[in-house]
Design a protein around this nucleic acid. Structure first.
Lengths: 329, 329
DNA sequence: AAAGTGTATTAGAGCGCTCTAATAGAAGAG
DNA sequence: CTCTTCTATTAGAGCGCTCTAATACACTTT
């Protein structure tokens, strides 16, 4: 920076102003500085800048699982909103585990990103509240009634109810649910499933098996379900990834979908839309969620709000070809 | 840091040593410092640390397309190798575009990550060589004969040849290729396809249509191919994503796969392995590539090497159910 | 002409660490 | 008992920026 200042014949402070696009710099000097910077191949050191200004203009995004296309969709929404507000995004890999998530969060905190978006968090509210003492955070895809941090998610209970209603309307009674283990949104989806089943007088048919929001998990759970003595006529998988896993094993066991079994997913990812898969699923408005998350963060960063806000979006059923009437008895 | 030093009754330098796990610190003082740090909730500021030490212990990873599961696989390999060497990973989103990639790279350079891994780069060698003047970079999934930066990739020409050999062995002659536009590895795969076609005396049947390594691109290209007057009996898509897109449109046009048309992809992602898809494809050893990329970077960082090295892995055919003999004439 | 207003520029004190060189103290060698 | 040689600790000078306060200068306004 000093070299640039010397070459341009100005002070380092002026170079700083030019590099930051500050107002009140004469055009003449600005050109001088830019020319000098170009000649020397000078690039501002963000570390130093951030250290001095105590801001990074960067938002850290922790993704639970890079293999789940749902999170790629979320990033699209976040990226658009961040671009529009002149923030940059850095992504951390949660590695589908709590430890991986913690490590990513810690990295971002140490790098002093201005805020944090955690998509599909597996942490407890308590831990997240602790984190939010260090930097504003927004949790995406997971409900919370925390009065400390913000959230942006769809109403998963409603989403689960939509699935059950749809299957019941088709005539199903034995509807099983593969949950997402310790994943985000699991509790609400499961609760929604249970409530809806009871509301339809199907309490005795409630059947939940454990999954983990992965394809392998869905495969394993569906395998168990299909070998069960009272095999279900419909399976509601906790997300598309596990639904696809379930779909695979169910068909290779010789069953027809939806002839013998209907399968419904959740998230409406590209996976579900694939011609070969054509999965009935629940749509989450990922772009809205991404935009909401960034907005919530910016409100905090601009000091416009301190009370926790919970943005809740509406889920919607997307009917494709993996659901149909149950087989005749 | 000063507060911690005061509370522990030592100098800030000692606090620094403890926080870095430096040797030659007495156990007694170490405990004092750690206790004080804990009590004050002190967390070292990585920005300041990096500014002072001129190292970040962080590697930036730029991914061409978060929606392509191939890159999630690559990250798995990178993450494992980084963990093993006490480096952390930060991911940038290339947004499937050259501009997005450039922006991500710029962010990492400004953050002064120790090195950069660019997976699926869309830049020219010249630009990359320029980048590598600022920090060591490794390009994954794209060949280069650059004498400046390192690469880790599979031999795509061989991979493409494996595909053509396989299809020819099944009896196909009219084998078309959907390429990846400006994506990584496109040139080699296309060249491999051409060379292999000619080697089998099928030069007149060479037919390349443009894709972009996306599902939508594959769909569009395959649609054009199937409406062509001399419709191919086999399609070699540049990657799994476009193969899946091709698969979808081909079947919805009423053709049977592989009865009427065989389709082969590239990358052997989870997508291809899905029961419903069961795509014949070429495997890339992603874990090997990730590990190689990190190793190459570390050699540079440790100053053990300055000459460019190109790690080339072997591709392998994975035969599934989308390829079979051509229809009888 | 004096005072006031606004714009353009700069000096210099941090930001929170690391790292070199210096120093103190303990242990061993002669 | 002095001289080395370690090990443990510390003072203080940066790292490359930003930001506050001060200054210089050109216009207005009274």
């Amino acid at each position: 920076m000093q070299q640039v200042a010397e070459l341009a014949g100005v002070s380092t402070a002026l170079v700083s102003l030019v590099m930051r696009d500050a107002p009140n710099v004469s055009d003449y000097r600005r050109q001088l500085v830019l020319a000098a910077a170009d000649e020397l191949g000078y690039r501002p050191n963000v570390l130093a800048r951030n250290l001095a200004s105590r801001r990074t203009q960067t938002i850290g995004v922790v993704l639970n699982d890079l293999h789940n296309p749902f999170f790629a969709d979320i990033v699209d929404g976040l990226q658009a909103a961040a671009d529009a507000n002149d923030y940059r995004l850095l992504i951390g890999n949660g590695s589908h585990s709590q430890l991986g998530e913690e490590r990513s969060v810690e990295t971002f905190l140490q790098f002093r990103t201005d805020g944090l978006v955690i998509a599909g968090s597996m942490q407890t509210d308590e831990l997240l509240e602790r984190t939010s003492r260090s930097a504003p955070i927004v949790i995406v895809g997971r409900t919370s009634s925390s009065e400390v941090f913000d959230t942006a998610n769809t109403d998963d209970e409603v989403g689960a109810r939509l699935v059950v209603d749809h299957l019941v309307a088709l005539g199903h009674q034995r509807i099983a649910h593969i949950d997402g283990g310790r994943g985000a949104g699991v509790i609400e989806r499961r609760a929604g499933y249970r409530t809806a089943m009871r509301a339809h007088g199907l309490g005795e048919h409630i059947h939940v098996v454990r999954g983990d929001f992965s394809e392998a998990g869905g495969r394993k759970a569906a395998h168990a379900l299909m070998l069960h003595d009272r095999r279900p006529t419909a399976i509601f998988a906790g997300n598309d990834l596990s639904a696809v896993g379930a779909l695979g094993i169910v068909e290779s066991l010789g069953f027809d979908v939806p002839g013998d079994v209907s399968i419904v997913g959740y998230d409406n990812t590209a996976l579900a839309a694939m011609h070969h898969v054509s999965l009935t699923t629940i749509n989450q408005p990922t772009e809205e969620l991404g935009r909401a998350a960034i907005d919530l963060l910016l409100e905090r960063l601009d000091g416009n709000r301190t009370a926790a806000t919970h943005h809740v979006a509406e889920p919607a059923l997307v009917c494709r070809s993996t659901s149909g009437p149950p087989p005749a008895p």
